[in-house]
């Protein structure tokens, strides 16, 4: 790999993997929570919540990045509080992870919500009649049965997070070694004379990573489904 990729290319790929990993892991509890709430409950404002979750999918990514910058920048309402606590995420890789998490969130929630909707509610009632509290029903019945969707959602979110560009570059810029993820690196190489070759290599890598993630998510979801259903 070292012969094939230059150090700056490797750096971009590894950074992308790190950003996507943390974006996925940290958004997963929220994805499961929101997916469950959307699948199971009717409440005023449900459509607003659903809209908010899906907004990053529709909004121009540069708008999402701009909003993040205004909120989480060191002058912003959230960013200034975090700064007092010694945490600065604007223009750092943690900010890239936040941007990637938000952009990938709709995909994650969608898959998780669908799999919760597919869980037989009568099994949940059965568990209640056997003495399970709502939390126990969630933890021991609904969540395990929805696991295939949780796996799919996580992998899709991971793949999306690796490829996130617009919101990331707007929010945390394109700093080599800090926020220059794979897509930002492709963009940078395209701007410099003679960078085309590097761009090509990263493009191929991006395709390979995305395709692998898609195939892996399909395969894993099937495996988990088999295990969960005991076939």
């Amino acid at each position: 790999m070292t012969d094939w990729l230059s150090p700056s290319e490797i750096e971009a790929v590894l950074l992308s993997l790190k950003v996507a990993f943390w974006a996925t892991i940290l958004s997963l509890p929220f994805g499961i929570g929101v997916g469950f709430v959307l699948a199971r409950f009717e409440f005023p404002g449900k459509q607003v919540l659903n809209g908010l979750v899906h907004l990053p999918l529709i909004l121009p990514p540069v708008v999402t990045g701009f909003i993040l910058l205004k909120l989480f920048g060191t002058q912003g309402p959230i960013g200034s509080v975090l700064k007092d606590l010694g945490i600065v995420i604007a223009f750092s890789w943690t900010g890239a992870a936040l941007a990637a998490a938000i952009m990938a969130f709709p995909l994650m929630v969608r898959a998780i919500r669908l799999s919760f909707e597919a869980v037989d509610r009568r099994l949940e009632d059965t568990a209640r009649s056997l003495g399970a509290s709502p939390w126990a029903v969630f933890g021991m019945i609904s969540l395990p049965l929805a696991l295939p969707g949780v796996v799919t959602g996580s992998i899709l979110a991971f793949a999306k997070a690796i490829g996130e560009f617009g919101a990331t570059i707007t929010f945390v810029s394109n700093i080599p070694g800090e926020t220059r993820t794979l897509p930002s690196a492709v963009y940078s190489f395209m701007q410099v004379p003679g960078g085309e070759e590097s761009a090509y290599r990263l493009v191929v890598l991006a395709i390979v990573i995305s395709m692998t993630a898609l195939l892996l998510s399909e395969w894993l979801a099937k495996r988990v489904k088999t295990v969960v259903e005991g076939r």
């Binding site: 059965t126 568990a127 049965l145």
Partner: peptide, 22 residues
């Protein structure tokens, strides 16, 4: 009382065993 507080053993038309458990 909530279903889980009633101490009833409910046997359903279809067995409704939990598929992910032995």
């Amino acid at each position: 009382l909530k279903p889980e507080q009633r101490h009833v053993g409910y046997i359903f038309q279809d067995a409704r065993l939990f598929p992910h458990l032995t």
